[in-house]
Amino acid sequence: MGYSYSGIVDGLKVFYSSMHQLNVEIGTFEHKYNNIISDAIFDTRDSSGWSLTFIKRVRGNVLCIPIQKGYRFAIIGDKEYNAFIEYFGIGSGKGQFSIKEFVDYLDKQIPAEYRLSDNKRKVILKYNKLDNDSDGIYPVGVKNWGVIHARNPELPEDKYHRTAKNLLKTKELYPDIYNAIKDIDITIIYGKHPGENTETIKAGKMDYRN
């Protein structure tokens, strides 16, 4: 019988509640353990199972841990346990390590309130690009396809519209913008560097209907 552990992480429930209030499904926070600093990504998009992924700063090593129902941190199997102790550089000798203590320590590092920032947006795109058309995080422009089609009636109606991936990216990175445009055929154009319209768009001062 292989290794098996499942323990509740209460902090994830509070963290998820804060994510839910923002209407996002991917959240991230900083995690430190055994002199290893990671970006932890809590991904709740898959209804069949959530995950907590650690990405090691500088080196980029990745460790993905399933989060079972009830916010349970789960390591099932010797292969998964060995990947866990290797990632965190944990000694496996008797008395050297307690996974319960690790989970308790993790719990204390999870913020009660999730606040998006440019650094967190970069972490999210490092974990998942969301939209292959652009790996930028800064909104630099908009395309209102309804207006474009009205001004250019020769354009085929079945082409030149917002993509689902562009809307998903906006939802996860800028939920306020998402709420403003979700019912309008608008593409948010992203750049790797801020543009002259970036702050206007981020502040919700852009007239999206024109």
Score class of each variant (00 low, 15 high):
Q109R: 10
I110V: 14
P111W: 10
P111F: 11
A112T: 08
A112D: 06
E113I: 14
E113N: 14
E113H: 12
E113Q: 14
E113L: 13
Y114L: 15
R115D: 06
L116T: 15
L116V: 13
S117W: 07
S117R: 05
S117G: 07
D118Q: 07
D118W: 05
D118G: 00
N119H: 12
K120Y: 15
K120T: 09
R121H: 06
K122C: 00
K122G: 02
K122D: 09
V123Q: 04
V123A: 12
V123H: 05
I124C: 06
L125P: 01
L125Y: 04
L125W: 02
K126W: 02
K126D: 08
Y127E: 11
Y127H: 12
N128P: 03
N128V: 02
N128R: 06
K129P: 06
K129M: 09
L130N: 02
L130G: 01
D131H: 12
D131N: 15
D131F: 13
N132Y: 12
N132W: 08
N132G: 11
D133L: 13
D133F: 10
D133S: 14
S134T: 12
S134K: 04
D135W: 03
G136V: 10
G136Y: 11
G136A: 09
G136D: 08
I137H: 06
I137W: 10
I137E: 03
I137L: 11
Y138S: 04
Y138W: 15
Y138T: 05
P139I: 12
V140R: 01
V140Q: 02
V140D: 01
V140G: 01
G141P: 00
G141Y: 10
V142K: 04
V142E: 05
K143S: 08
K143E: 10
K143Y: 01
N144W: 08
N144P: 09
W145G: 01
V147S: 00
V147N: 03
V147Y: 02
I148T: 12
I148G: 00
I148Y: 09
I148S: 06
H149R: 15
H149Y: 05
R151D: 13
R151L: 14
P156M: 02
P156E: 05
P156R: 11
P156D: 07
P156T: 00
E157G: 04
E157D: 11
E157P: 00
D158H: 09
D158Q: 05
K159R: 14
Y160L: 13
Y160P: 00
H161I: 08
H161N: 13
H161Q: 12
R162S: 13
T163A: 06
T163P: 04
T163F: 07
A164T: 08
K165I: 00
L167I: 13
L168Q: 12
K169V: 08
K169I: 08
K169L: 09
T170M: 07
T170L: 12
K171W: 03
K171N: 05
K171E: 10
K171C: 03
K171F: 04
E172Y: 07
E172H: 05
E172W: 07
E172I: 07
E172K: 03
Y174H: 05
P175E: 02
P175L: 09
D176N: 14
D176M: 11
I177N: 06
A180K: 15
A180T: 10
A180Q: 15
I181R: 01
